[in-house]
Lab assay of single mutants.
Amino acid sequence: IRCIGVSNRDFVEGMSGGTWVDVVLEHGGCVTVMAQDKPTVDIELVTTTVSNMAEVRSYCYEASISDMASDSRCPTQGEAYLDKQSDTQYVCKRTLVDRGWGNGCGLFGKGSLVTCAKFTCSKKMTGKSIQPENLEYRIMLSVHGSQHSGMIVNDTGYETDENRAKVEVTPNSPRAEATLGGFGSLGLDCEPRTGLDFSDLYYLTMNNKHWLVHKEWFHDIPLPWHAGADTGTPHWNNKEALVEFKDAHAKRQTVVVLGSQEGAVHTALAGALEAEMDGAKGKLFSGHLKCRLKMDKLRLKGVSYSLCTAAFTFTKVPAETLHGTVTVEVQYAGTDGPCKIPVQMAVDMQTLTPVGRLITANPVITESTENSKMMLELDPPFGDSYIVIGVGDKKITHHWHRSGSTIGKAFEATVRGAKRMAVLGDTAWDFGSVGGVFNSLGKGIHQIFGAAFKSLFGGMSWFSQILIGTLLVWLGLNTKNGSISLTCLALGGVMIFLSTAVSA
Score class of each variant (00 low, 15 high):
Thr427Asp: 01
Gln131Glu: 13
Gly459Lys: 13
Leu352Glu: 10
Val46Ala: 13
Met421Trp: 08
Ser304Cys: 00
Gly408Leu: 05
Asn371Cys: 02
Glu191Asp: 12
Val502Lys: 11
Ala165Trp: 13
Asp37Ala: 15
Trp236Leu: 01
Ala54Tyr: 06
Ser499Tyr: 10
Gly450Trp: 13
Leu307Cys: 03
Leu441Arg: 02
Ala275Glu: 00
Ala422Phe: 00
Asp22Leu: 01
Leu269Ser: 07
Asp87Met: 11
Ser72Tyr: 06
Ser58Pro: 00
Gly436Ala: 14
Gly287Glu: 00
Ala311Arg: 08
Val114Phe: 08
Gly184Gln: 09
Tyr137Glu: 04
Ser405Leu: 01
Ser385Cys: 13
Cys190Tyr: 11
Asp336Cys: 12
Val56Asn: 07
Val415Gln: 11
His446Ile: 05
Ser86Lys: 04
Thr313Met: 13
His235Phe: 07
Glu191Gly: 11
Glu162Ile: 05
Leu25Cys: 07
Val317Leu: 03
Arg175Asn: 08
Glu329Trp: 11
Lys128Ala: 05
Phe497Met: 12
Met349Cys: 01
Leu113Ser: 05
Phe382Glu: 05
Lys251Thr: 03
Pro192Cys: 15
Val143Trp: 07
Leu300Met: 10
Gly302Gln: 04
Thr500Asn: 06
Gly29Met: 05
Lys124Cys: 10
Pro192Leu: 02
Lys419His: 13
Leu456Arg: 08
Glu276Ser: 02
Ile130Val: 14
Thr406Asn: 14
Lys93Ile: 09
Phe431Pro: 06
Glu136Phe: 02
Ala272Trp: 12
Gly127Met: 10
Lys480Phe: 02
Ser173Gln: 05
Met349Thr: 15
Trp225Asp: 07
Lys409Val: 00
Gly181Ser: 14
Tyr81Asp: 11
Tyr81His: 15
Lys297His: 13
Leu196Met: 03
Ala248Glu: 01
Gly482Val: 05
Tyr137Pro: 01
Gln89Leu: 13
Gly263Trp: 12
Ala270Leu: 13
Arg402Trp: 06
Ile448Leu: 02
Leu204Pro: 11
Leu135Pro: 10
Asn371His: 15
Ile43His: 09
Thr156Ile: 14
Cys121Met: 09
Met421Ile: 10
Asn8His: 03
Cys308Asp: 07
Leu107Ala: 04
Phe497Gly: 01
Lys118Pro: 00
Glu191Lys: 12
Leu107Ser: 01
Thr47Ala: 15
Lys215Asn: 12
Leu258Phe: 08
Asp230His: 08
Leu467His: 11
Glu133Ile: 08
Leu424His: 06
Arg73Gly: 05
His210Asn: 12
Gly184Ala: 05
Asn481Met: 13
Asp426Trp: 13
Glu367Val: 04
Asn103Ile: 05
Val415Cys: 10
Ala451Asn: 05
Leu471Phe: 15
Leu293Ser: 01
Gly232Phe: 08
Gly458Thr: 04
Ile387Cys: 04
Ala241Val: 09
Ala165Gly: 05
Gly356Glu: 06
Val434Leu: 14
Ala268Met: 13
Thr160Phe: 01
Thr194Ser: 09
Asp155Thr: 00
Gly104Tyr: 06
Ala361Glu: 04
Thr309Gly: 11
Val415Asn: 12
Met421Leu: 14
Glu216Ser: 04
Gln36Arg: 14
Glu274Trp: 06
Pro192Glu: 04
Thr487Gln: 10
Trp474Phe: 12
Ile130Glu: 07
Thr487Ile: 12
Ile1Thr: 15
His226Phe: 03
Glu274His: 09
Gln447Lys: 00
Ser64Lys: 12
Cys92Thr: 03
Ala227Tyr: 03
Tyr305Val: 01
Pro224Ile: 08
Pro192Ile: 03
Val46Asn: 05
Arg9Gln: 08
Arg292Thr: 04
Gly404His: 11
Thr254Pro: 00
Trp217Arg: 12
Met53Leu: 15
Leu242Val: 07
Ser464Lys: 09
Leu489Ile: 14
Gln147Gly: 14
Arg420Tyr: 12
Glu44Leu: 05
Gly334Met: 09
Leu186Asp: 04
Lys93Phe: 10
Thr95Trp: 08
Thr19Arg: 02
Asp155Pro: 01
Thr500Gly: 00
His144Tyr: 13
Asp296His: 14
Asn52Met: 08
Gly302Glu: 09
Val243Ala: 10
Phe497Ser: 08
Leu378Asn: 05
Thr126Cys: 12
